[in-house]
Structure formats: structure tokens, C-alpha cells
Design a protein around this nucleic acid. Structure first.
Lengths: 241, 241
DNA sequence: TATGCATAAATTGGATCCAATATTTATATT
DNA sequence: AATATAAATATTGGATCCAATTTATGCATA
């Protein structure tokens, strides 16, 4: 049996993000504790932590609920991420990248070039690009030397406003996804160039536009919502990020 | 005796923000529980909550510590608040203010005009302006209709990057504070005008500049730090906000 | 005197019991 | 049948005990 403790939080978080616990589903301490094979104490702490992370909503007197997010909230979150990552790009440009950061960013861009050179992508390519994209953004946030950015971002990291990056939600349309991600990749090039040349304002502007591309996915969710389809939002979102 | 429960969190938070618990001070569950007259359980939950709020730092195996913030973190936080409040101003302009919001903002600006018309301010004026300023910013954040902004801001609300607003830290120099706050007040006018005229980009730019004015206070803290003075940062910051 | 090891102390983590509160259900009354 | 009231249920909140882990201390040894 896996170690208990802090792991209850991770386990519940993973269950929410994977969609195993559906958006809107109610959770009470006792049944959850029994299900996980632990006592109420760690579950209580986990619920409060996940509530603060924005993954659970408290229902006074009736337990907790897996948070439901509306399309408006998704769009708003995309905007927030845009300005925060834009600030990161600006400050990274002002601070100058370290040699190691420059090298790793160049390597990531190179790998992306190879990926898109074929003129088409498959699901595996998307998975690869997903990881590369995450790393790309992470480096820039680190290079900003502003821990407050990561702190502000962490509140919403499970939400869908992420930069255009990874596994397409609608994987059936790989032609469209190729265009989408190839364009995002070109934006990465532009962001890097601006940062590398110390053009803070330019880097910020491109990064904000880059983040806005994610609105396309928000629209897909919106459409699903209208069609009455179940919106495993947190799940899908997380795949996209 | 006051009701226990959720109040342990509020009490500890207030003790930290007021400076009663000094920055860097260690806190353990048992002594804290005894001091507050409760059991360990609510204290445990409170510690984790306050850690997530950024008020406590966990020391593995040695309890918790009231968070210490460096001057660099303060400056970084000011920048973060700048872009978030800038976004709020932009979106408020795009959404159009409600009649009630327009009226209240106008009333606040009018009261500010009266306050600064005298050509000087005293401590009481600063306290009044503090409340007015908070309300001014709150309305704009609400008018953005973007809850993600408030959510991202909440993570840092106890930190010092706030908009130039309120009780001067260095209250002895009231002439300088008059200039500082009068200028901030004029920026409020400009932000309102831009929002009212639907000029989103302009509103955002002014708001960002407005937030940057707070850097002046960060420098004061920096100076104190160099002089080896104790930096009750959270306390002072909170008074300034 | 410095260092490594063993022991003691401090501290958090988990489980369980009891208390308080809010919600739901059932019942009686009009 | 609708409503108010009361009982029952569900659920969280707090206290306390025990376990596990980490840190601090002291002692022996080189």
C-alpha cells in the first residue's frame, strides 16, 4: 500500500484532473476517507487544500464539490495567464537569459522545427510537443527571476488558460491541429528572439498574443457546453496545457 | 470566549499581518494551540491554509515560520499586481461600467478632490484616502467581470505590491506623502476617464504605471533592510495597501 | 578539540471519539 | 394539499491518543 499522508492530496488532485471525479460531483469526508482507505483527518486537510487550489468548491453543510468552471471563467483565466506570462517574457528579456537557458530554449525550438518539418503531425507528435511546450514556458517564467509570477500562476495552473501547447482536445482534426501548433511554434521562435535581443516590450506583446490563441479551445468547450455534453473541463484542459 | 473553528485562521492571519508575530518567527502546532486555547487540529489546518496564502513557510520537521519577503520579492509582486490590475482596467473599459459603478467611482474621485484641495494632508486624511483607494480598485476589478483576476490577486493580497494608495509608511514626511498621493489621485482620474470612454489599452497602460508608483515604497523597505532595521514587512505593507 | 554514533526530544501525521451544526425527511396541523 | 414543526440524518469541527519522522543533544572515541 502506498504511503499515506501528503499523498492523499496528490491522489485526489489526480482523480479530479483525470476526470475520474467528474466536475460537479459531490464529495464528503467520510465516504472519501473510506474509499481511499485512510481516516478523515488527511481527507479534511486535502479538501481544504484543494479548495484553495480552486479544484473543489465548498457546499456549506453538504460537503465539497468538484469545481465547475464556466466558459466565461475559462476565457478570463486565459487573459490572466496572458498578462502574467507576458510579464515573465518582458522581465526575462530585461534580465538577459543565462547561457544554459539560451541553449535549452534553442534546443527546444530546434526539436520543434524537426517536428513540424514533416508538414503533418500525429498524436504522438502532439504528446512530444506538449512536454516541449511546457518546458519552454517554464524556462521563461524562471528567467523572469520573479517568483511572484509563478505564485500567481499556481492558483490557476489547473485551469485552461494555458499557453497554446499540447495535446489537442479535438484530436480527430489533426490537419487543423497541425496549423494551430505550427503557428504556436512560430510564436515561440518570435518570443525567444525578442527575449534574446533584449526587446522586453516586444517579447511581452508576442507572449500575450500567444496565450490568446488558447481562446480557440475555450470556444470548443463553449460549443460542448451548449450541446449539453459533459464538460470534464479540468480534465480536458489539463491535457491541453 | 469567541467561537473557535474557522476563527483560528483569522486570528493567526491577523497576528501575522499586525506584526504581533514577527517575520521569521517560528511557530509549532502545540505551543500555538495552547496559546490560542484550542487543540492541535484547527491549528494544523490553519498552518496549511496560511502556508498556501503565502503567510507561513514550512520548515520540514521544525514547524512553520512567518514568511520573510525580500526586497526583490516585493518588487516582483508590484509588477504582478500591475499587470493584473491593468488587465482589470482594460476589461472594465471593454465591458462598460454599470451606472452604479460609474456613480460610485465619480463620488470617490470627488471626495479625493476635496481631500487634496487643501494643499496638504494629515494622518487622518491618509486613513480616509486608504479606504477610498481600496474601494476604487475593488470596483474596477469587479467591473472587469473576470473572477480569475481577483483569484490570482488573492494569492498576493497580503504582499506589498498594492496600488499606491493609503497610509504612508513614512508618516513623518507628510509633504512628500501629499505629493505622492495627490499624483496617485490624478492617476485615478485618468484611469476612470479612459475606462468611461471605452479606451481599454489606455486604461491598462495608466493602471500599470499607477501600480509602479508603489515601487517607491519598496525602496524604502530596501533601505530599512540595508540599515538592519527589522522589516515587519507584512505589517507595514498591509498598512500601505 | 573535533567527529561520529546513539539516545532523547520535538514535531508533525493519522485515527478515533465526541460535539455542534446544517440539511433532509417525516409528521402533524390547518 | 400546503405549511409549519419536529425528529432523524448527514456532515463538518474539535480534542485526544498513538505512531512515525525529523531534529537536537550528549557522550564516547580518536
Amino acid at each position: 500500500m502506498s504511503k499515506p499522508g501528503q499523498h492523499v492530496i496528490s491522489r485526489l488532485r489526480q482523480m479530479i484532473l483525470s476526470g475520474e471525479l467528474e466536475s460537479g460531483q459531490r464529495l464528503a469526508e467520510i465516504p472519501t476517507a473510506e474509499q481511499l482507505g485512510v481516516s478523515r483527518t488527511p481527507v479534511r486537510i486535502a479538501f481544504r487544500t484543494l479548495e484553495q487550489e480552486g479544484l473543489l468548491t465548498k457546499l456549506s453543510g453538504r460537503g465539497y464539490m468538484v469545481r465547475q468552471v464556466t466558459q466565461a471563467e475559462i476565457s478570463g483565466s486565459i487573459e490572466v495567464r496572458g498578462v502574467l506570462e507576458g510579464l515573465a517574457a518582458r522581465q526575462a528579456a530585461e534580465n538577459t537569459l543565462s547561457k544554459a537557458q539560451t541553449n535549452e530554449l534553442r534546443e527546444l525550438l530546434k526539436q520543434g522545427d524537426d517536428l513540424f518539418a514533416k508538414g503533418s503531425i500525429n498524436e504522438q507528435d502532439l504528446a512530444i510537443y506538449h512536454d516541449m511546450n511546457q518546458r519552454f514556458h517554464q524556462i521563461i517564467i524562471e528567467a523572469s527571476l520573479n517568483p511572484a509570477i509563478a505564485e500567481a500562476l499556481s492558483r490557476n495552473e489547473h485551469l485552461p488558460f494555458a499557453s497554446v501547447s499540447a495535446l489537442a482536445f479535438d484530436r480527430n482534426n489533426l490537419v487543423q491541429e497541425y496549423r494551430r501548433f505550427n503557428f504556436a511554434h512560430m510564436q515561440h521562435h518570435a518570443v525567444f528572439d525578442a527575449i534574446h535581443n533584449g526587446q522586453g516590450s516586444r517579447a511581452e506583446a508576442i507572449m500575450r498574443e500567444h496565450a490568446n490563441a488558447t481562446h480557440g479551445y475555450a470556444k470548443i468547450f463553449s460549443q460542448m457546453e451548449k450541446n449539453g455534453e459533459k464538460m470534464h473541463v479540468l480534465n480536458n484542459i489539463n491535457s491541453i496545457i
